[in-house]
Design a protein around this nucleic acid. Structure first.
Length: 664
DNA sequence: GCGGATCAC
DNA sequence: TATGGTGATCCGC
């Protein structure tokens, strides 16, 4: 490790140290200087050493892939290989759906601009939000290379006059709700992907109001500005992924419409850096680069090799990337799709057993609190710890009863920690999976009139066998429930996807269907494997988004009839997108959560149940701000994951798990 | 079912 | 003066 030749770091390491969001600024000559400063400031730290280690692992992985490629390429008729891929491309092209107008809204430097709003004296100044690690930075600070996720002391090296501003999470969430409420008027099925991002399908709204989509989006952005003095950027395209990429195009305070036209889309994709695709991160970018894929257009040039390395890269996914085909289904996330709940914390490295156990207890208390508030129990507990070397490990244990109290969490954690001693830790965390939704019982008119999710945490304990917080064993009332997976069986609770067939253990699949076209494609047109897609490296490329199919139901300009919101009639209601003038006849009651109007009481009740369950999750994320828990500029990946479609994938690296007994 | 790894935000 | 937290997914065992 201590070679004298360490004086110069690999270019890949320098990039890695620059952080994940380095792609934003592009590669100006200044950027390389910035990266050098960052690498310089990091040098010698434990963090730096760990990054170096990981960087080397990726390099080794690349070597394995190249070796594999050279092996596979022997005696192969590349022309024929490419011909096969071309047939596959034609088949995928036939799935393209250009009928829907999908919009992705993205608030500009959300936290920073809210702070600016509340403290005008910051105008024009370079400032970062957060302490320790920045959650975001003002545009002035970004000019110096200051980015979200950057440690404060490094930001100071780049920008000595940088001002540090405190986080005000509840304020951001308040503003966010206001804006989301506005958006929802244009599409009740809007997907709030995070605090500052939303996806909408404005097709129907535009039809009904005889509006051009660009015009519509322009007005929406103007309304947001009028009502909040905040600017928002937007992307308009035929599917969610394209819309997301487009919203970045004219940021800040701009919008971009990618024509609903196959040619235009492919032209657009051709020059697009592969890294822009959601799911292609720093590692995947390097792996793809090693076989010559830098842009989405390169996918076509390299289709032969990609076909040979299907297992490693997922040919089918990559072809969808190249064509710019992805899901255009927009629907809100559902509570029942939650898969885990956890809590973790970083602290100054400690090695005393008592102190570590104290941290464990703290985390157990936090998690218990969150689980209680959210109404969750679970069967598997996973302990996570990070050594002071930054190496991360997890240890898990499954139980045949539901874990839900602080004491149970703590005991499980202690047991998992037991064999690992001695340790010197800088982080400890607990996560619970195999969840059971404690709120699902008496699903019906779920406490519509009771205090909303925010209020007294006691409420959730109502489901408790006793109100006690004691560690009385909570014996599983219905064990069969758990055998049914997710216990999501017959449910009235959450209408979302209730009618959908279940796919595997992962629970419900979005309506756009899980079965990929692979099964529909004439078998000679695709490579040997039954599943025409694979991951990049050992991680399935999160290009899963590109996997799901466009639902046939979505064809046709009119209504999407797979609406899972329990308000069937609302779909054909003229007031689906309520304008001020719409409230005519009978008494109109608004949903207290999303402000959607109703005239029928039953419909309202059903809707509120549905809305509540989503709200509960949303507030659970936001509540994180107690305890100054630092959050990223946007934090709700799970919401995002929920709409990610299909999956599938192959394998990769010959990585072998190192079940190391790590001391130190 | 477990553990490591990658990714998004 | 010392690089975050939550959640998801996939692979190889």
């Amino acid at each position: 490790m201590e070679h004298p030749s360490d004086t110069q770091e690999a270019p890949s390491l320098v990039l890695r140290l620059a952080g994940p969001s380095t792609t934003k600024a592009g590669l100006s000559t200044e950027q390389t200087e910035i990266n050098r400063i960052i690498a310089e400031a990091s040098k010698g730290s434990k963090f730096y050493e760990n990054e170096k280690r990981k960087d080397k692992e990726v390099t080794a992985r690349i070597e394995r892939i190249l070796k594999l490629r050279d092996q596979a390429i022997k005696g192969v008729d590349m022309g024929k290989m490419e011909q096969k891929v071309d047939h596959l491309l034609e088949a995928i092209e036939r799935e393209r759906d250009l009928t829907q107008f999908i919009v992705h809204f993205d608030m500009d430097a959300f936290y920073a601009n809210v702070e600016l709003l509340d403290n005008p004296s910051l105008a024009g100044k370079a400032f970062g939000v957060g302490h320790g690690v920045l959650t975001t930075a003002s545009y002035e600070a970004r000019k110096y290379g200051v980015r979200s996720g950057m440690p404060g002391y490094i930001a100071l090296k780049l920008c000595p006059d940088l001002i540090f501003v405190d986080l005000h999470m509840s304020r951001y969430s308040e503003v966010s709700k206001q804006i989301m409420g506005l958006f929802r008027q244009y599409d009740p099925n809007m997907l709030a992907a995070s605090v500052d991002e939303a996806y909408l399908n404005i097709t129907e709204y535009c039809m009904q109001h005889n509006l051009d989509p660009d015009e519509c989006v322009g007005r929406m952005r103007q309304r947001v500005f009028d009502e909040t003095k905040l600017t928002v950027s937007a992307g308009i395209a035929a599917n969610k992924v394209l819309a997301q990429i487009c919203s970045d195009k004219n940021k800040p305070n701009g919008q971009f419409h990618l024509p609903h036209n196959s040619e235009a889309i492919r032209d657009f994709m051709r020059g697009l850096p592969i890294r822009k695709i959601p799911g292609i991160g720093r590692v995947s970018e390097r792996l793809l680069d090693s076989i010559g894929v830098k842009t989405c257009g390169d996918v076509y040039k390299c289709r032969g090799v990609l076909s040979l390395l299907d297992k490693q890269f997922g040919l089918h996914s990559m072809l969808r990337v190249h064509l710019g085909i992805a899901s255009n289904v927009v629907q809100p996330g559902a509570r029942e799709e939650r898969k885990s709940i956890g809590s973790e914390r970083t602290f100054r490295a400690i090695s005393e057993k008592e102190k570590i156990l104290q941290k464990l207890e703290d985390i157990a208390a936090e998690l218990d609190d969150d689980m209680e508030r959210g109404g969750w129990a679970g069967r598997t507990v996973t302990l996570k710890y990070k050594l002071d070397t930054y190496e991360v490990f997890t240890r898990a244990k499954s139980f045949n009863r539901w874990i839900r109290t602080k004491a149970e969490l703590y005991e499980a954690g202690k047991e998992l920690l037991q064999p690992e001693w001695p340790l010197r830790l800088r982080l400890i965390g607990l996560r619970v999976t195999k969840l059971k939704d404690l709120r699902k019982k008496d699903g019906g008119i779920l406490k519509f009139l009771e205090p909303l999710p925010e209020s007294p945490s006691k409420k959730s304990r109502a489901y408790d066998s006793d109100g006690q917080d004691s560690d009385v064993e909570y014996i599983e009332p219905d064990l069969e429930d758990d055998l049914n997976h997710n216990a999501s069986d017959s449910e009235d609770e959450l209408p979302t996807a209730a009618a959908e067939p279940r796919a595997s253990t992962s629970g419900h699949r979005p309506p756009q269907m899980f079965a990929s076209s692979a099964s529909e494609i004439p078998s000679p047109s695709r490579p040997s494997k039954p599943r025409g897609t694979g991951p990049i490296g050992s991680t399935r490329v999160a290009v899963s988004e590109w996997q799901d199919q466009v639902s046939p139901k979505h064809r046709g300009l009119h209504m999407r009839d797979d609406d899972d919101c329990p308000v069937p009639k609302a779909r054909s209601d003229p007031d689906k997108a309520p304008s001020a003038s719409t409230s005519t006849t009978a008494t109109v009651i608004e949903c207290p959560l999303c402000t959607r109007p109703f005239t029928d009481n039953d419909e309202l009740n059903a809707h509120v149940d549905w809305c509540l369950s989503r709200e509960a999750i949303r507030s659970a994320q936001v509540e994180g701000d107690r305890n100054e828990r630092s959050k990223p500029e946007v934090g709700a990946q799970h919401l995002k994951e929920w709409w990610k479609g299909g999956s599938v994938e192959g394998t990769a690296g010959s990585r072998k798990p190192k079940r190391r007994k790590l001391g130190r």
